[in-house]
Structures are given as C-alpha cells and as structure tokens.
Design a binder for these strands. Sequence first.
DNA 1: GCCCTCTGTGTAAGCGCTTACATTCACTGA
DNA 2: TCAGTGAATGTAAGCGCTTACACAGAGGGC
Lengths: 349, 349
Amino acid sequence: MPERGTNDIVRSGAPTLEDVAEQAGVSTATVSRCLNMPDRVTKSTRERVLAAVKELGYAPNFGAQALAAKRTNTFGAIVPTMENAIFARGLQAFQEELGRHGVTLLVASASYSPELEENQIRTLVARGADALLLIGHDRDPQIYRFLETRGISFVVSWVYDPDAPHFSIGFDNRAAMRRLTEKVLGLGHKEIGFISAPRDGNDRARARYDGAADAVRAVGLSAATLKVIETPYSIANGGDAFEELVQETGVTAVLCGNDVLAAGALKRAASMSICVPEDVSVTGFDDIEIADIVTPGLTTIHVPHREMGRRSAQALMAMRNGTAVGHSVELKAEIKWRSTLGPVQPQQS
Amino acid sequence: MPERGTNDIVRSGAPTLEDVAEQAGVSTATVSRCLNMPDRVTKSTRERVLAAVKELGYAPNFGAQALAAKRTNTFGAIVPTMENAIFARGLQAFQEELGRHGVTLLVASASYSPELEENQIRTLVARGADALLLIGHDRDPQIYRFLETRGISFVVSWVYDPDAPHFSIGFDNRAAMRRLTEKVLGLGHKEIGFISAPRDGNDRARARYDGAADAVRAVGLSAATLKVIETPYSIANGGDAFEELVQETGVTAVLCGNDVLAAGALKRAASMSICVPEDVSVTGFDDIEIADIVTPGLTTIHVPHREMGRRSAQALMAMRNGTAVGHSVELKAEIKWRSTLGPVQPQQS
DNA sequence: GCCCTCTGTGTAAGCGCTTACATTCACTGA
DNA sequence: TCAGTGAATGTAAGCGCTTACACAGAGGGC
C-alpha cells in the first residue's frame, strides 16, 4: 500500500480534517471547533472553513470521532422481530426522535431467543452504541451487569413494572389484559380460550396471561377456566390454535396475546363458518394496523407504540447527556372497541 | 479529567487491548491477532489470551477498530418507512443475513422525502457504514457520485431495471403490474381506477402505474381510461381514494399501488356496502400480511421480500470483500390470486 | 504606558486499535 | 556444527479526530 504522507501530490480516499485545515489555512483544531462549537470561532474563519468543507466534500471519519470523543451518537435497539408490525411503529417513532437529535439507530432483532438477544446486545455495545432500547425485562442479570459496567444507558420498553429493578417506559400489560378480560367476563363468557405467545422468557406474554387469570380468579372462577395454548406469533399459528380451542373445548371467547394471533383466529373462524362475535368472541392486543382491517374489526387493546418509542428516545438521550436519571413512565393502554367482542349467546341446543 | 496512564492503580472504563495484553503477558499485537486471525497464534498463547479477555470482560473499542482497520462491519439501510409492513420483512431478512456474517445494520427511514433520504445517506456514511441498501433508483445523481467517491458499495433494491445505471436486486414493477392489469382487462373491465402513491421521486410507484398504462394501451384503449388518484400510502387514504373513484367515475376495478391502499379500499367498500369483487374488483401489490387477512382475501402481486433482503445482503458483502462486482438480479413477482378480482358483472340498470 | 483579561487560534498529546516490519527461536538439512 | 528457514511474537507507526493547554493580540482600567 502506498505511503500516504502529507506531501503526496495525489490524495486518495476521503478528505480529512487536515485537508480542510490546509485548504482553509487554519489548524485542525479550529476546523474541529468550527464543526462542533461554531460560536467559539470568529465568523470570518468559520466561513472560510465551511467553504473548504464544502469544496472538499469533507465528512468526519466516524471511527476517529468516536475514538477521540468517546461517544458515537449511535443508539441501539434490539427488538424480538421486525417481521410483523408489532414493533415497527414504535421503532419508527424511536428513530424519528433520535434522528431529530443527530443520533443514528442501530437495529437488531433477536427472534425471541434469549441467547440471540444477549449476542445482539453485546454486538451493539461493541459497535459503539451509546445507549440501548430493550424490550421487556426478562433477561439474564449478568447482561444488566454488563451494561452497567460499561456505562451504557438503556431503557426497558413495552412494559411498565414499578417493581422491576430497571427503569422502564411502557404500559402495564397485566392490568390492561385484566381489564379486557373483565369486560369479557361481564358479557357472560365463562368458557374462555387464551392464545398466548410462548411465555418463557417473554414477560409481556406472561403478564398478559396473568392479567387474564387475575380477572378470572377475581370472579371466583379457577384460573384453569382459561384454556391456554402457547404458540409463536403468526397468523397461521393463531388460526391453528383457534381451531383447536373451538373444537376441543366449548369456548365462547378467545383472548389472543396479540393482534397477529387474533387476525389468524378471525381468519380461521371465517373459514370454519364460525360467526364472530355471535358464535365466538375474539380479542387481540396491540391495536396494530390489521386490527382495523380485519372483518369484523378487532376489539383489542390500544398500545401507545409511537409514544413509547418517542419517550424512550428522549429518556435515553437525557440519560446519556447526564441530564436526567431514568425514571419509569407508565403510559396508558386502553381497550379499543370494535366488533369482535359481544355477549354470550343463549345456548342453541 | 484525571490523567489515565498505564501506571494508574485504579483503571476506569472498559478494558483495552493493552490491559488484556498485560494480563496475558503478551503484546497487544498478539492479542489483536488472537482475536482476528486465531490460527496465526499458538494454541497455548491463544488460550492464555482468551482467558484474559474473558476475565476482564474485554470487548474491542469500535471507534479504534474502525479507525485502524478502515472498516466498520456495519451496513446501512435507508427505507422509505418502517411504519407499515412493506419493508419490514425485507429488512428483517437483510439483517438476519448480515448478522450471520458479523455485520450489523444501521437503519434509517426517509419518509418518502428525497431531502431526508439524502440526509440519511450522508449520515449513515458518516457513521461508518461500509455499504448501503437503497430502495429504488430515483435520486439525485450527485448522491451516487458521492457514494462512488467514498468507495461505498450500495445496492438498489425493490426494483429491477437493467437499463438503470446502477446495479439492482429486485423485480420488475412495471412488468408485474402490466401482467396483473392484463388479467383485469381480460375479465372485461373497461373502466379502471388506479390508486397510486405519489409518483414523483418514487420509481416503484411510477413503474407500477406505467405497467398498468402499458396494458391498457396494448388493448387499444387510451391510457386516460385509467382514472388515477395519487395519495400517500395509508389505509385511510386508500379508503378515501376508493370512495372518490367509485362515486365520481364508473370504475368496475380499482388497482392499488400497494396492499395498504388496497386494504383501505376494501374496508371502505365494505362500509359503503359495495361488494368486492361483484360490484368492484380490487387488487393490491406486495402481498404483505394484510393481503391474506382482509376479507375477501386480496388478489395482489407477491413480492419476494425476504429473498430481496437476503440477496441484497449477500451482494453487498461480496462487493465489500471485493469478491464480486455488482450484477443486477431479477427476482420473480407473480400474481397471487385470492378473491378480490373477478369478472365484470352485467350492467344492472 | 503597563498589566491583566479575554477571545481566538495553534500545538500536540492522546483515544485503542491494526499491521508492516523487525526480532527471536526452534528446527532443518548439509 | 551451522547457516537457513519459517513460525510466533514483539515493536512501533500510524488511523483522523478531540481537547487541554499554550500562546498571541486586542482591549480596558489604572
């Protein structure tokens, strides 16, 4: 590789601070200041420097900047999946807010696998993420220790649990599902199915189920009244679980752990010629786009995705700047009434 | 700030290569080799080093690594939006493939704004992206010049256009829409509506419209037969456009630029008590999740999202490694038949 | 007129890695 | 026995930036 000294006639690669400095007839320090603290430099110098920057098409070298400044202005987000819309809207809002403040977003998805997630966290940290957005509390304590040791700010989102040891911005999955289940019970349903995502390692799924169980117990029924099927989030899985529930038990209502499962259930109901909500009621969770698109419209729980994303971004930036210490925030998740939840029909027999 | 020399008793911050070297009793070069070219180091040394790495919890400093090695192992993707599912699946596949090869993904969304996109591209490049995934060809030539100057590999995806000056991996939007439109015409439709995304600065949208126009002209009709409404991708907009089309013109079929618009159209049709496809046929484009969820199931064009993401990732890695030069790849986009496209009904009057 | 302050700029020391090149050392074959 | 070989390791020079500190010059107060 050719030596690349300051005397070279032909320069290759991207222009550096030094090139700009030379072109503008100032020192590299001045150029740097010009770019980072413009008001510490006289107007005339600044103009000269900016002109040189423009002319050379200079852009700072990220690695060098990160190395020298010890910050990357890059945040990371590890979500379980980008495949369905559950996290997309929140992530989009998160990114928009970061972008507004000159921070870029590193994204990884962990496919609901704890090992993969740990891996991704370490990778993003190694890649220089200054702060991290994490979904849910469930993870090996040593990961938290790792983050704390490294001084990486993080916020746990999509959940709100004041008892959890870490700062979170989200909503109370359990309480929300409990409220919805109370409505279901109030409509006379006694045989209730619950299609859940695998609860192991997923505190949102667990909390949602627990909320339903709470409600059931509160009316004096046994939690076993709830027929649970666990299956990964997907339309097809939702359909299969629904079919199984309907055929093997006498459920009149099926609560779904999220809208994707519910959409699958609705679709299967249609193909089985089961009327919703006349024959069976169905509910979802999340209120993503499809909830409003399916027929009939899905009664679900509206989750403030964008708000979560935005607030998480703000919190992380404040934490990184040392402006604020993490403080859990509870957002509201309300029932969104549409058409899939109705009263139990008189038994036809 | 306290001086941080090698003699400090108390070390703060993350451990460095030097710490590991000291702990293992070797030089930093050896540690670096151990980590990057393990087979150039004796087994015993390697074990000692790895033990030290583990004990100290060492992870390389990203900035330093990027600076010294001149590569970041980070690729960027700029998509128009993450909000709806159009790009999510492709992005997920893209990321999975990158992850398999130790590359992390930087994501930005440009909200269909050329200025924002240019901005994001520059940001990602400045952030050290080694390579970029771009959607569509439409952008200021100077951006391409910029990328080439900087030696950043990129692939244009979601489109396939052998005549375009840049390497792309995608499918022929125009041909696909033409084929679909031919089917529509073949079913006797003569009054056809087209709900498009804004075509300015969006070559996919333009190509889709052009494909439809091609088909219409091919049967001897004027392209003006196609009643076009442009509106940004959203369910509500799709609904509004559909309503306008139906009320102001006598369309018997409405082609939608994507599934999101189509979903909106179907929803509005239902609320207007218009039967699909008996009264009006509707088609989509993309075959995202909702296409299979809406009632009736949406006839649309299946786009190989995952394949595009995967292939794009592979191409970029090959290009970065100098293994291969970009070579456009055309993927198939076939009609996915469901239930929203039917023959024209005899005029009821 | 002198000293002090303040502002703007320059100087240069790192930041933590990678890697070309130098060195060491254990073998090999004649 | 000894030069020659090659593998393993060490030495040290950057990579391009930020920033503490040094310094010069302008102005102000006395």
